[in-house]
Each structure stands twice: as C-alpha cells, then as structure tokens.
Design a protein around this nucleic acid. Structure first.
Lengths: 151, 151
DNA sequence: GTTTTTCTTTGCTAAAGGCAAAAATAGTGG
DNA sequence: CCACTATTTTTGCCTTTAGCAAAGAAAAAC
C-alpha cells in the first residue's frame, strides 16, 4: 500500500468533488442566462458548425442514452437551432447539424462561455493558468480512460 | 484584450467541460454500484461523523435549495442512515447527523471512492499527481470565488 | 401580544435521464 | 427473393433531480 498515493488520491477526490459542484452551478447559471436548458447548452456546446452527427455519436460524447438525446434534439429542432435529416447512404441514421440560427448562437455561446472563464482567470498569472490547464488535462485523461475501461 | 488569456481560457473551458461530463458519469456509476441515488451519495459524502448539520448548511454546501435537501434527507432518513432531530436551542432548526449505520456506510464510501481515484492515479508519477492537485485546487478556488460573486 | 422574520416542509411542476418495446432500415444466409 | 437478424432511432413510461411558492412552526422584534 502506497501511503503517498492514498493521500494524494484522497485529496484529489475531495477537490474534484467540490469542483464538480461548482462547475455544475456555473453551467446552470450560464444556460439559464441564455434561455437554454442545461442539457441543450451541453449539447450545443459540442456540435461544430458544418459537421453533422448521428444521435449515437452525440449520445456517446455526452455520456447519455440515445433516447435522451432524441429528446434534447427534439427541443433544439423545435427552436430551429438544428436540422435533422435522414442519411441518404443509410436511412437508419439521422444527420444532426446546426442551422444558420444555431451556428450564430453556438458561436456566441462559445465566445461568452470562454469569456466567463477568462473573467475568472484574468487575475492570476500565466504560469498558474498553465498549471490549471496541465492539471485538468491530466485528470481529464485519467478519468476518461478509466471510464472506457470500467463502463 | 489579452490574446494569451483568451487562448488559455478557451482551452480550460473546453477541458473543464469534458472533465465535468466524465466525473458525472463516474459519480453515477459509483452511486449505483453502492445502491444509492446520486443525490444521496453526494449528500453523504459531505457529512462528517459526529457533526450535525442544518438543512440550510447542507443545501448551501451542495449548491441546492433547502426544499431539495429536505427530500434527499427524507430518503436517507427512511434508510436509517441519518437522524433528524429538532434543535433544542432553536426548534426551527433541524439537526441532521449520521446514525451508526450511516457512519459505517460513509466510512466505506469515502474509502472506496478514494480507492477508485487511487486506481486511476496509480500509474502516473508522484509529480504528475501533484500537478493534478495543484491545477484542480487553483481552478476550484477560482470557480468557487466566482460563484460567490455572481450568484 | 401581535407582527415580522427565520427555518423547514409540503404541494406542485419542470427538467433530466434511462429502459424496454416499437418502427424503420440494412445486411445475410438459404 | 424471402425470412431472419442486426442496427439506429423514436416512443411510451417511469424514476430521479430540482426549484418555486405557500404553509407550518418557532423565535425575535416591536
């Protein structure tokens, strides 16, 4: 039993837990301020302009079930933010892509969400920002890998 | 406009977003494996053995509404994991504390949740673990402060 | 001693999310 | 070509998560 590992794991567990709560609150506020449901914001956040996605792709990258995605897309479609067309090659597939309205909104969303983080980061040093990047990057990689193995 | 800041903010925004999704999936799996609802796990995770808490305290530290907490506590109470007694000094207050059964469970939960993170962290260097700690710690502080200011 | 304030709970509603079955399409073996 | 299987999405139904507003209950203030 590696004592040092146990200590570090405990500390990181605790911190990650707190960070999660805070970031969820942050996302909720941001989505609400932009008239979106949290799930809609999360979905829009990952679709890139010009690309098209299947329901499954979106479900996988959001860690949600396909049925849940259908509903989220229903909402975005109703607001004319995304298009949903049957794939011609394989008509079982849906091709979800941003409408012009959607592209405009997503552009604004990404810009402003980054600005929000810029606001948080502006008073610390470039080095500390790099430390944040590096730390979170490492952690993200680990959790992501762990999930693939244990899902 | 600080270009470097904008770049860093963008990168951190993206990473944090991904980390969040992964950690949520991780929490959900862990809670399920232990026969708990996610909200219950999150609540148990923050109550310490021997201490007692008001509904408000718990709501605040979980970033949830008091009414939501009442329901979560209802569930934990039904499973005899927490006690709920009226405060004698001020009978408006509830005093929520862990039962013996609750203490045992929480002990096990914290242990195993830390172990899960230990599992993820075991193959990287002590230095990288420190980088994770430092990065997440910095970020958590920033988001937390930002929330207080903007809530 | 009534009014105001504070803390918790209750009723109601919305949002988030999954499972299982259905619908639609594609592929495959005879 | 036809039946059967596999894949993708959707639908119906249910649970979980969450907040708001009003009600209850107790303390504090006037």
């Amino acid at each position: 039993m590696d004592v040092k590992l146990k200590q570090q794991a405990s500390a990181i567990t605790e911190l990650t837990f707190d960070l999660l709560r805070c970031c969820e609150a942050k996302e909720k506020m941001f989505a609400k301020d932009h008239g979106l449901k949290v799930a809609e914001f999360r979905c829009l956040r990952i679709v890139e302009a010009g690309k098209s996605y299947s329901v499954q792709e979106l479900a996988t990258s959001m860690h949600l079930s396909p049925s849940r995605l259908t509903r989220i897309i229903d909402g975005l479609f109703a607001e004319k933010l995304v298009d949903r067309v049957q794939s011609i090659e394989d008509r079982r597939f849906a091709k979800i892509s941003l409408t012009n309205k959607g592209q405009t909104l997503v552009g604004k969303l990404k810009e402003e969400y980054a600005d929000l983080h810029g606001e948080m980061l502006k008073d610390i040093s470039v080095e500390d920002r790099d430390k944040i990047y590096e730390g979170i990057s490492l952690m993200q990689g680990l959790v992501s890998t762990w999930l693939v193995k244990n899902a």
